[in-house]
Every structure is written in C-alpha cells, then in structure tokens.
Amino acid sequence: MAQPILHVTGLTMDFGGIRALNNIDLDVNEGEIVALIGPNGAGKTTFFNCVTGIYQPTKGEINVYNKHKGRQISLLGMKPNQVTQQGLARTFQNIRLFSQMTVLENVMIGRHCRTKSFIIGALLRDKRTLREEEEIIQKSHQILEKIGLTRYENEFAKNLPYGAQRRLEIARALATEPVLLLLDEPAAGMNPQETIELVSLIQEIAAEGQSILLIEHDMKLVMSLSERIFVMDYGKRIAEGTPEEIRHDPAVIKAYLGEEVDA
C-alpha cells in the first residue's frame, strides 16, 4: 500500500497546564483533500503550527514522505523553513502577506526554498544565478496565472481586495512546490461569490494531484471539497470519515450543537 504523505501519530501539545492537542493521529494520502474541522478552540491551528514547526510538540511523531528518498522523514525538531523545504507549505488564518512587496514578489519569495544563490551569487550575477532568477520569475508568473491574479502582478500586496489576498497566500504557498498544502481557513471572511470561486480554485489545484489539508468553518465548502473529514474538539479526535459519515455522526453533532447549554 502507498505510504501516506503526512503521517502524524500521538501528537500532543501542552501550553502550561492546558493540553491543546491530545494524542492526535492523522494521515493524509497522496492526492487527497482532508478537512480538519471542529469548534473554535478545538486545536486545529495548533495542529498546523506543530506540523509546520512553529511550535515544538510535547509528544508525538510527525513524518512526511519524501518521494526522492523513498522513505518517511521525521519533522520533529525542524525549524519552519526546514519543514517547508521538506514539502509542507501553509497559509495563515489571519493573512500574513508581505504587504510592502508586489504580488509577484510575494510569490517569488515562495520560490526561495527551491533556489540556492546567496551573497556571492547576488554580487557576481553569474550565469547560474541569472538563470535561477529567470526561472523564479517565470514560475511565479505561471502560478499567478493559474490562480488568476495576473492583473494584480505589480500591485503592492496590501492594496489587493480581501479575496485576492487570500488567493495570493495560496499562490505563495504553491510556489514552494509543496507535497502537501495546508490551508488555514482559506474562506474566512469571504463573501459567497468569493467562496464559490475559491472552491473551484481548490478543486483545480487538487485536480493536478495536489494533496491538501484544510481547516475550515464553512461546512458547505468542507462538505463539497473534502474526501475525508477529521473532527476535533478540546484537542481530541472525536470523529473521522467521509463527509456523509460525519454528517450523521452523533459525536460531531453533539460537539457542534451541544447537548446542554454550557460553554
């Protein structure tokens, strides 16, 4: 059987006395769209932060499958940039663009981890560096075309409409050539029209074989996009399955609607 590209076992994260993540096991297979849902404060973003190296988890294993080496690589102890290098790229819940850079430059930054030149290259501008630079620009441009942001290419990122900013975050993450794309509430704050466009964008990306793990609150989006849904509450897994299964899962209904009125 094919290896999962992301293989998380027993992930636990404590903040002081609070257990934000409790023994989470989660796999994502190649080409799959998995949604991570749960009420506010369930620990979804903490999960992302642990996986992408922003937090160091208290316990557990995080492995990513490296195709070239043909084996799982542990992400524990890696810095965020090394995690990205290994093929996990993410977007942020509260948009974090480089606001004083143009749209194209934002995407070009995404190419950083796939290119090499440094001080010497910058000073000498040798053939390799120039070729690399050319490649960065080309690829970034292609990605913008795909995402549909070409007309904003030379605008400052901060001047973009809200929906376009969210798309730009996705474009920037795609530029790192991720094995797995992690989207943290990509539709948050979008209007219905923008959400519809976003769904078709994500579908397009997925159609090219991109594996995606996404956090989302918009149930319609989650149900229509994902192949598998993972539900969390209070840092624990409460259910996992196809959208259809989740829809009827009593634990999920309980977590979302609550049995009795309590906070």
Partner: peptide, 18 residues
C-alpha cells in the same frame, strides 16, 4: 527579496522556507 520579506513578516517568511 528575502530581507524585505523578513522585514515585513518573520513568521510568514519562515513558513515560505527562508
């Protein structure tokens, strides 16, 4: 470019592999 990105947002910058 990496410098400017770093100035703008350190966390996003790292998440982009810098």
């Amino acid at each position: 470019r990496a410098w400017v990105a770093l100035r703008e947002d350190e966390i996003a910058c790292q998440a982009m592999g810098i």
